[in-house]
Amino acid sequence: MLLQVKNLRCGYGSLEVVHGISLHVCAGEIVGLLGANGAGKTSLLKSVVGLLQPWQGEIHVDGRPTRGQAAWRSISHSMVLVPEGKMIFADLTVRENLLIGGYRNPDRAMQIEIVFDRFPLLRERASQLGGTLSGGEQQMLALGRALMARPKILLLDEPSLGLAPLMVKEVFTEIVRMRDQGLTVLLVEQNVTATLQVADRAYVMETGDIILEGNAADLMHNPEVKRAYLGKGAKEIWE
């Protein structure tokens, strides 16, 4: 298991948003983490990388405990988060954005060429300011920036958010390619169909709890998945 989370509880102030959940990701897997708005997906990711202090629970990355460590240390554990909304540096060029992503990588000059080979579009726009890229291109830049750290495990928070359908397809194709080349991915998404099509396994979260775990293909037919998104008011699903 590359990432192991046990009984994680976290929240904001006195409000608990993740109620003691457990999950794991094995090497070479794409694992989807699905759920509606407010289910606690992003809080969970933040806790895993150290941006949000967990209240309770265990986090192991590659067998090493990481709970309570500062967020910047997560890169030492070969774990990189691509946050929701890309969070690229709009006033820096594409090349500068990438170099920042590889600031702890002594081979970043070589790595940037690997990233450019993977995303040829970024090479074309190397001198362009990040803020001038389209939404899809910015997402590619965010992925490229994450790859600059040569992670073993990539945590992606809603990479399809705000993208045109064609661009979503491209981003997900890229995620599959990364998995095929040995990268492990924890993919947090609201786009259920697209995620279940590319993921090996998936977890479904609802109001701070994991309610389902299973093979992605099997979850595709599970009515509980739909209910988790539409809520109990979805009468055509639940009575």
Binding site: M1, Q4, K6, C26, I210, I211, L212, E213, E224
Partner: peptide, 21 residues
């Protein structure tokens, strides 16, 4: 075994949530 027990714990926790709901 370690992975199996992790998987069992995850599934048991999810089962309890579903049963309660």
């Amino acid at each position: 075994r370690a992975q199996l027990e992790q998987l069992q714990l995850e599934r048991l926790q999810a089962l309890l949530v579903r049963l309660k709901r």
